[in-house]
Design a protein around this nucleic acid. Sequence first.
DNA 1: AGGGTTAAGGAACACTCGTTCTTGACTGAT
DNA 2: ATCAGTCAAGAACGAGTGTTCCTTAACCCT
Lengths: 124, 124
Amino acid sequence: MGRPRAFDEDEVVRAAVTLFAGRAYDSVSVDDLVSHLGVHRNSLYKVFGSKRGLYLAALQHYLSQELTAAELDLLLLAMAERAPVDAEVATLVDAALRDLDKALGGPAATATLLGERLRARATP
Amino acid sequence: MGRPRAFDEDEVVRAAVTLFAGRAYDSVSVDDLVSHLGVHRNSLYKVFGSKRGLYLAALQHYLSQELTAAELDLLLLAMAERAPVDAEVATLVDAALRDLDKALGGPAATATLLGERLRARATP
DNA sequence: AGGGTTAAGGAACACTCGTTCTTGACTGAT
DNA sequence: ATCAGTCAAGAACGAGTGTTCCTTAACCCT
């Protein structure tokens, strides 16, 4: 019943990952999301509750996959600017970092990887 | 001649460093700056030209001193969220990183230091 | 004392923000 | 055919944004 959705929820989340990985959370407006994601304002709020809800969904989807070195940007931004002011983000980030520690063989390797990617992002 | 300033420019810049080190650039409003810095709106624009101008002044002042491990936060934020969208920030950051490389003995040590501090900031 | 100049103080600007409301279109089941 | 339920479309909201304007206060120099 009801009118069928004209958008793919997973596709929306993946596009949101790309947007949020590119610039700071506050620099990505709901207008940006609506116009780049192919989802309407109303549906965004219906499905994700808020801009923050979509951000959290995007972050979770992103952190649930294998992180390659080239795709650390959303994690970097989440660590630098969101985790300090959003406890839920901090929790997600912490879990992802522990996984990285295991995959890489220890926190030292994680720190080096993050530091290198952060620098590559800042000074291309 | 003219009415003397009721604020110390250096003090304002140092307070701006603290504010900008705490949260993302867009999260720090001009109202925040005005109310925490002891400088009035008009003077802020007269002296620094814009919010970005004050940010750049704060970043330069901050990068011109010795960076201790506990005070890397503004550099981290600048790298993560400003350098990719502000070429002048990218230039300042690049120079500071080269200095860090020399002080620490190579880019690898810089990467590790930044990665460790980034994590400490994200998951306290 | 009196211009000239600079800063403080605060209202006001046009604009953007995240969010909600209203209206109408489309669907499957009765 | 009708009804309930879901979505699209877009206008509208109040609050907040960075910036500018205008008036008043404080100082130096002649």
